[in-house]
Design a protein around this nucleic acid. Sequence first.
DNA 1: ATAACCATACTACCATACCAGTTAAGCGAG
DNA 2: CTCGCTTAACTGGTATGGTAGTATGGTTAT
Lengths: 247, 247
Amino acid sequence: MRNEVDPAAAIAPQIYRLLRQAIVTLEYLPGQRLSEQEIGARFGVSRQPVREAFIKLSEAGLVRILPQRGTFVVRISLKDVANARFVREAVEVAVATAACAVAPPEALDRLGDLIALQKEAAASDDQRLFLRYDEAFHRTLAEAVECASAWPFIEDVKAQMDRVRYLSLPAASPMSLLIDQHAEIVKAIAARDAERAGDAMRLHLREILNSLPRLARAHPELFEDDEMPAHAREAASATFGRDVAPA
Amino acid sequence: MRNEVDPAAAIAPQIYRLLRQAIVTLEYLPGQRLSEQEIGARFGVSRQPVREAFIKLSEAGLVRILPQRGTFVVRISLKDVANARFVREAVEVAVATAACAVAPPEALDRLGDLIALQKEAAASDDQRLFLRYDEAFHRTLAEAVECASAWPFIEDVKAQMDRVRYLSLPAASPMSLLIDQHAEIVKAIAARDAERAGDAMRLHLREILNSLPRLARAHPELFEDDEMPAHAREAASATFGRDVAPA
DNA sequence: ATAACCATACTACCATACCAGTTAAGCGAG
DNA sequence: CTCGCTTAACTGGTATGGTAGTATGGTTAT
């Protein structure tokens, strides 16, 4: 978060990116108050672009704006994470399925390149870099089916999941597993097997359900006191069989 | 658009709703310039909340903000409409599928009530009211699977489609057809038949593909000069067999 | 000791002022 | 008449000021 803003470019989006990154990486913890005044002073900008960043953050569900009271980083809500995951699974499974019909071979090459880069990042144990390539992989796949204009929506939804992702970084699902899942997705698309590609993507995106209950128990102070909706328990038990009920 | 704003409530969201409505109903046509100054004067508010409304409209893809030049209503883009439809189909088919597993009977009752209201609106030929109940139907279904927090997401995506919807109002898909499709969705969910529910929703949401090429030819001045992405042509031909190619 | 009150110091929101960049019209030179 | 420059009138982006509402801490009355 020490990055300076570029006064030549539009400031508000830069502040948004910086704050989002800080929240998602848990540099700003749930409950923390964000002051327009203070953030503006820290980056040497006025309150107005900071305010616009706050509004976007609140739409992404990362902060809660209470008029005349303050703006606060929200706790991680199992319900919100599960719903975000639900939406993301729906969209990206559809993307993977569609890719089998319409993705050009060059796109598959690019996806292969990104997997190779992820392997490098995993080899040097650079988790941040790994996550960057992970995001690039999913975005590239969306572009492959000419859904680039749909990516910003996925990106918004992803915010809820990303924070959990960073929370699980120390002992996450091993990077090698995620790489294998990416590879399986690409292989299925290359084989033009729509059902297999969809299933592979579904399995990949349900991975987070495996660690979520454990993380919620390990860090209760970071989590909202709510439960996952029924559709998430369904999805988890269908994939992993257990370890999803609160108990 | 003649509605006044309520100065007691937050102004920016009100302006957003009013402008969105005006654009979607084609009261503001593509290419029209929107001036912060002028809109603010018309509603008796300052430029600031208007500006925030513009930002949201641009994120929904309804206007394009060109810094230091102006803000303009964008033409309808076949690509954007098709992508929005793709995303919406993915999410709502997943919702319909999940509803079979988790929707409580009371939710099905509410959906039945909304279908009855739609029939009334159709009987009195009130198209605006019909569209309102249509939206309520889809939102209620999302709530039935505890995906209420996912609805704002669908609502954003829907903006692109709604404008086409209003454009097609005079001679749209007959309301009775859409009501039958809603009824079929509810029946499938009541029967807990996930595959049938998903297919019914898919068919329902692909209806727009049936009229889109015709509308684009009939109103070329309203449309961006682009083509639907491959996935949309796939979806259309899979459902309707033809009349989707530009020719 | 406790409870009610009030002054103070915040907050977000809206309004206003200022700035830099774009556009286009008007004027002057060729 | 045509081309090129200047300039004035816009634009959106940012900074700053004003306002109403909320939390808080200290003081006073009970």
